[in-house]
């Protein structure tokens, strides 16, 4: 996919980083690395996800989904917003588990399952945004709006 809008490009770059990070987590979980390494990777992923939820998700929900809906793509916008909510719920669950000082075997098992679930949900979400949202932005944003949005996003 090739994007001409700064906003699309910026989101695309963040999508690539997300997929790389969570694919790495999947590998870490599947290859059964030592617990300390798994926890370290999970904490890095959770921190990155917090940032993504705070900036990336909020930006899309505030600035982009309403534009998508206005252009007649309301069900796609709603689908993406629902996925944000589900990811938020799963992220909150992961955060709670990571707050445990010394997680026992059951907690570790839950963290592995949550990590895999979040990886799948995030990757699928990225795929949908790459297919449906970013190409639509190429039509929805004129040059000036694109510049304003990308500057506002960079400053957030």
């Amino acid at each position: 996919m090739f994007f001409n809008r700064h906003t699309s490009l910026r989101l695309h770059e963040e999508h690539l980083a997300t997929v790389q990070l969570w694919s790495r987590l999947e590998q870490v979980i599947v290859t059964r690395v030592p617990e300390a390494e798994l926890l370290d990777t999970l904490r890095r992923c959770a921190a990155a996800l917090d940032d993504e939820i705070e900036r990336h998700f909020h930006f899309e929900e505030r600035e982009l989904f309403p534009r998508l809906a206005e252009a007649g793509e309301g069900d796609i916008a709603e689908l993406l917003a629902e996925e944000h909510e589900t990811i938020r719920t799963a992220a909150q669950a992961l955060r709670e588990l990571l707050r445990l000082g010394q997680p026992d075997a059951a907690a570790m098992q839950q963290m592995r399952a949550l990590g895999l679930e979040l990886a799948e949900r995030l990757v699928a979400h990225v795929q949908k945004e790459e297919m449906a949202l970013l190409p639509a932005l190429e039509d929805l944003l004129d040059e000036e709006t694109d510049r304003e949005l990308s500057l506002a996003y960079a400053a957030s």
């Binding site: 929900e61 998508l68 809906a69 007649g72 309301g74 069900d75 796609i76 709603e78 917003a81």
Partner: peptide, 11 residues
Amino acid sequence: MIPFAAGARSR
């Protein structure tokens, strides 16, 4: 949930 779908004619 954000109600976006009303009147949508989507892909």
